[in-house]
Amino acid sequence: MILLGSLINGLAIVLGSLLGAVLRNISEQMKETVTKGIGLGVLVLGIQMAFKTSSFIVILISLCVGAMVGEGVGIEDKMNVFGLELEKRYAKPGSNFAEGFITAALIFLIGSMGIIGAIESGVANNHQTLFTKAVMDGFMSIMLTATLGVGVLFSAVPVFLYQGIIAVAASILMRYIPKELLDVLMEELSAIGGLMILGIGLNIMGITKIRVSNYLPGIPILILIVTVLFYF
């Protein structure tokens, strides 16, 4: 079953969010300390991933051009509007539903683990990587929900769709992509994803407020540049 890994990942986020909702009565001091701990872990993960690049110039160009596209389209604003619409339907007024949805979705979506795991699911029907990611996301969703609210639960939907689409596409398209190109793409995608995750970590720590969503167009731009360089 190609979508098994994506399904388990989504269910882990739902279960973790439900448990986090039960733990909402834990002290604010504990929430803050654990959240900052998650932020530190996300920072380290982002740094580790960012160093995997073999062409920093390509990463920088992709990130900057992607930021221009993202700011022009207003991806961050649209995600906020979407989260606020969900908040009107499912959350109490004044809650931080939108922040929880967006923060969790970005943390769970960005990174090579989900991409590589989805590709493995689609190409080899191997779900081990996504199962591992499910464990990580499940534990992180507990604290994110306890801190940011029920909006985290709804991030399971884009996670399932995103990874599921990659898995299905991989099962069809990967047979036409040379292994050498695929290896380079995974390396550079990991690096640009690491920089975005680093921004998320800084946001969680409260150090700054980076509109990370607006960098997302940098991913397809990176794929295009790497592919062109590979063939030419």
Score class of each variant (00 low, 15 high):
residue 1 M to P: 13
residue 1 M to Q: 11
residue 2 I to P: 11
residue 3 L to R: 01
residue 7 L to H: 00
residue 8 I to C: 08
residue 10 G to A: 05
residue 10 G to M: 10
residue 12 A to K: 11
residue 13 I to L: 13
residue 14 V to C: 10
residue 15 L to H: 01
residue 16 G to V: 06
residue 18 L to R: 07
residue 27 S to H: 08
residue 28 E to Y: 11
residue 30 M to I: 14
residue 31 K to Q: 10
residue 34 V to K: 01
residue 35 T to P: 00
residue 37 G to V: 10
residue 37 G to P: 08
residue 42 V to C: 08
residue 45 L to G: 04
residue 46 G to L: 05
residue 47 I to P: 08
residue 48 Q to A: 05
residue 51 F to M: 15
residue 53 T to L: 06
residue 54 S to C: 00
residue 56 F to H: 01
residue 56 F to E: 02
residue 58 V to I: 13
residue 60 L to T: 14
residue 61 I to N: 10
residue 63 L to D: 05
residue 64 C to Q: 10
residue 64 C to W: 12
residue 65 V to Q: 06
residue 67 A to S: 13
residue 67 A to D: 02
residue 69 V to L: 15
residue 75 I to H: 02
residue 77 D to Y: 13
residue 78 K to Y: 12
residue 78 K to V: 06
residue 79 M to Q: 07
residue 80 N to M: 12
residue 81 V to C: 02
residue 85 E to R: 14
residue 85 E to Y: 07
residue 87 E to M: 14
residue 92 K to H: 06
residue 93 P to T: 03
residue 95 S to R: 03
residue 95 S to I: 08
residue 96 N to H: 14
residue 97 F to K: 11
residue 99 E to C: 00
residue 106 L to Y: 11
residue 107 I to P: 03
residue 107 I to L: 15
residue 109 L to E: 00
residue 111 G to F: 04
residue 111 G to C: 03
residue 116 I to L: 13
residue 116 I to T: 10
residue 118 A to H: 07
residue 119 I to M: 14
residue 123 V to A: 04
residue 123 V to C: 03
residue 123 V to D: 01
residue 126 N to Q: 09
residue 128 Q to H: 09
residue 131 F to H: 11
residue 136 M to I: 15
residue 137 D to R: 04
residue 138 G to P: 09
residue 140 M to V: 14
residue 140 M to N: 05
residue 142 I to E: 02
residue 143 M to W: 15
residue 144 L to K: 06
residue 144 L to H: 02
residue 146 A to K: 09
residue 148 L to V: 00
residue 148 L to P: 10
residue 149 G to Y: 08
residue 150 V to S: 12
residue 153 L to N: 06
residue 153 L to G: 10
residue 155 S to M: 07
residue 155 S to F: 07
residue 156 A to Y: 05
residue 160 F to R: 01
residue 162 Y to R: 10
residue 163 Q to S: 07
residue 165 I to N: 06
residue 166 I to C: 10
residue 167 A to W: 09
residue 168 V to I: 15
residue 168 V to M: 11
residue 169 A to N: 07
residue 171 S to V: 00
residue 172 I to G: 00
residue 173 L to M: 12
residue 174 M to C: 12
residue 175 R to F: 00
residue 175 R to A: 11
residue 179 K to R: 11
residue 180 E to D: 14
residue 181 L to Q: 02
residue 181 L to P: 07
residue 182 L to A: 05
residue 183 D to H: 08
residue 184 V to T: 13
residue 185 L to P: 03
residue 188 E to I: 13
residue 193 G to S: 04
residue 196 M to V: 05
residue 197 I to T: 15
residue 199 G to E: 02
residue 199 G to W: 06
residue 202 L to A: 14
residue 203 N to H: 07
residue 206 G to V: 09
residue 207 I to Q: 03
residue 211 R to Y: 06
residue 213 S to R: 06
residue 217 P to S: 10
residue 219 I to T: 05
residue 222 L to P: 06
residue 223 I to W: 03
residue 223 I to N: 03
residue 225 I to S: 05
residue 227 T to S: 15
residue 228 V to N: 00
residue 228 V to I: 15
residue 228 V to F: 14
residue 230 F to Y: 15
